[in-house]
């Protein structure tokens, strides 16, 4: 057998590789995407979950009568589906890392801890956006046939993206904690929902403005977006700062 392959490097040859962080970031993100394409575990379970939520909504609204316009609560219904769906995915994404001690192997490599955070959060953001994109048309078809859409077309994608950044950003930190606890999913829910309150409130306000349109909807939309963006900026920064402590514990 080629003995040279198993040899160590002479110490003098070691140099700091430039651009390593970016390479590591891409490697983690690519790995998560490859694994997801192979197992389709997260997107399938999240997608199915959000479909089930639609059924529950139908039951909830079944006695509301024809005078009731579901558009008035569309924003709330959508974000409710997204927040609970996201927790399913976040939990999965960190369980993968824990499973065979892979997280430990990751921490043993010369990687800056924030790189792990941003890579995992980006992966979660991508999967969340995919599920949201699949959910919206179904939701619109089932609940928003009469009345139509009041705002401009770009409003919904904008608020979806802004809101999902916060969910993925804070959720990745929380899932990293909850995956190490004895009631994983339950703990994640308990931690996540109250922390997400301001984000959801602002996102629902902006989404409702976009769906309903009409007078003042533009200013309501932008103040909602401002709220979401402010939350994203502060909370993602905090999550990033805390991640190193949490992942090393």
């Amino acid at each position: 057998m080629a003995d040279e392959i198993l040899r160590r490097t002479p110490p003098a040859e070691r140099t700091k590789v430039p651009g390593l962080s970016l390479r590591q970031y891409k490697a983690i993100l690519r790995k998560d995407i490859v694994m997801e394409l192979r197992t389709k575990e997260m997107v399938t379970s999240m997608g199915l979950y959000s479909l089930l939520t639609m059924v529950v909504y139908q039951i909830a609204l079944s006695q509301s009568g024809s005078a009731f316009d579901p558009r008035t609560i569309a924003g709330g219904l959508l974000w409710l589906a997204f927040i609970f769906t996201s927790m399913l995915g976040l939990n999965r994404s960190l369980v993968h890392e824990k499973d065979q001690g892979c997280l430990e192997a990751l921490l043993l490599s010369p990687v800056d801890r924030p790189v792990i955070y941003f890579a995992k959060a980006s992966g979660n953001l991508i999967f969340l956006l995919i599920v949201e994109t699949l959910t919206i048309p179904v939701f619109a078809l089932m609940f928003l046939q009469q009345g139509g859409y009041g705002g401009s077309w770009w409003m919904i994608p904008l608020v979806l993206f802004a809101g999902s950044v916060g969910i993925a950003g804070v959720g990745t930190l929380l899932a990293t904690m909850s995956v190490n606890t004895s009631g994983k999913d339950f703990v994640l829910t308990v931690l996540m929902v109250p922390l997400m309150y301001p984000l959801l409130l602002a996102a629902v306000s902006a989404t409702s403005a976009a769906v309903l349109g009409g007078d003042g909807s533009i200013s309501q939309f932008w103040s909602g977006i401002a709220g979401v963006a402010g939350y994203d900026a502060i909370m993602v920064l905090a999550a990033y700062a805390l991640y190193e402590f949490v992942i090393g514990a």
Binding site: K31, H96, C102
Partner: peptide, 25 residues
């Protein structure tokens, strides 16, 4: 080298090694 394999079960052997090679630069 641990009693835990520290490998991703859903990646192939080659992908696992390439992934960690990337992590180590």
């Amino acid at each position: 080298i641990s009693h835990n394999p520290l490998l991703y079960p859903d990646l192939t052997a080659e992908e696992n090694l390439q992934f960690f090679a990337d992590m180590y630069g």
